[in-house]
């Protein structure tokens, strides 16, 4: 391990690695946001009465969870701009549209994260006892009120541990978007190890940075779980 290589400033790679860690965090947060956004529609579709709506959601989660993350990213990276352009053509825009590495990375990881979040949130919805909804109806609550006052608070509580796992997956999956050229932890470590011929130093540093990120977020999720569970009676 050669610590000299990790000094801050233009002589060493320390500041580059730290900046890359920030990019990892940013892209993970964006991807998780996109994933949660997708999972709202994913869950609603999976719980829908219409066969085709359910089918579309099932196909989405099966495909995204069944093929390697690396391939999802490559496919979006090489095919994403073309797909967006063909959509834009439908709306009458014929110029060239380019998605930058951050956006492509966030969308790719978001799509993966969304498939896992969908399953977690769907499970949490189903975990709310039917009796409670019937009871809410019987006291005259309408659909919206039931959703806001009965379902959401409980779904959130049931889903939190699962979402914590999805977050960890998402965070680690961002290592793969190095292939899009986005300089996050993994790409920076790859570049630095190549340029200095010191792979051990930089991959250990990368591992430590990921551990710091996963540990910190774990702590946050744990306290969130405690907060969400504060009204629950325990044996």
């Amino acid at each position: 391990m050669d610590l000299e290589l990790l000094v801050l400033g233009d002589e060493g790679w320390g500041d580059e690695m730290l900046r890359a860690a920030l990019v990892t965090l940013m892209v993970s947060l964006t991807a998780m946001g996109i994933g949660l956004f997708i999972s709202i529609f994913g869950t609603l579709s999976k719980l829908s009465n219409k066969f085709y709506v359910r089918l579309i959601a099932d196909v989405y989660t099966t495909i995204v969870r069944g093929i390697p993350e690396l391939l999802v990213i490559y496919l979006l990276f090489f095919g994403g701009s073309n797909a967006v352009m063909s959509v834009a053509k439908l709306f009458g825009y014929h110029g060239y549209i380019e998605l930058n590495a951050f956006v492509i990375g966030a969308i790719a990881i978001g799509a993966i994260s969304g498939a896992y979040s969908t399953e977690v949130i769907r499970g949490a919805f189903l975990a709310v006892p039917r009796g409670q909804i019937d009871a809410a109806k019987s006291v005259g609550m309408n659909k919206f009120v039931i959703f806001a006052r009965i379902l959401i608070p409980q779904v959130l509580r049931y889903a939190l541990p699962g979402l914590g796992n999805v977050w960890q997956l998402t965070l680690k999956d961002t290592a793969l978007i190095m292939v899009t050229g986005l300089v996050e932890i993994m790409r920076q470590a790859h570049i630095a190890s190549g340029s200095t011929y010191s792979p051990f130093t930089f991959y250990i540093t990368a591992a430590l940075l990921y551990l710091i990120l996963t540990t910190a977020s774990n702590t946050i999720f744990n306290s969130a779980e405690n907060w969400a569970n504060k009204g629950v009676r325990r044996a």
Binding site: G95, Y96, N100, F102, V103, I191, A192, S195
Partner: peptide, 27 residues
């Protein structure tokens, strides 16, 4: 973050390189 460029106007050119092939192109 979606930027648009038009073909035929070359006042701005994007150039792809590897950045891992010194001394041709390194980092």
């Amino acid at each position: 973050t979606i930027s648009a460029a038009y073909a035929g106007d070359w006042s701005k050119i994007k150039i792809g390189t590897e950045g891992a092939y010194p001394p041709w192109n390194g980092t």
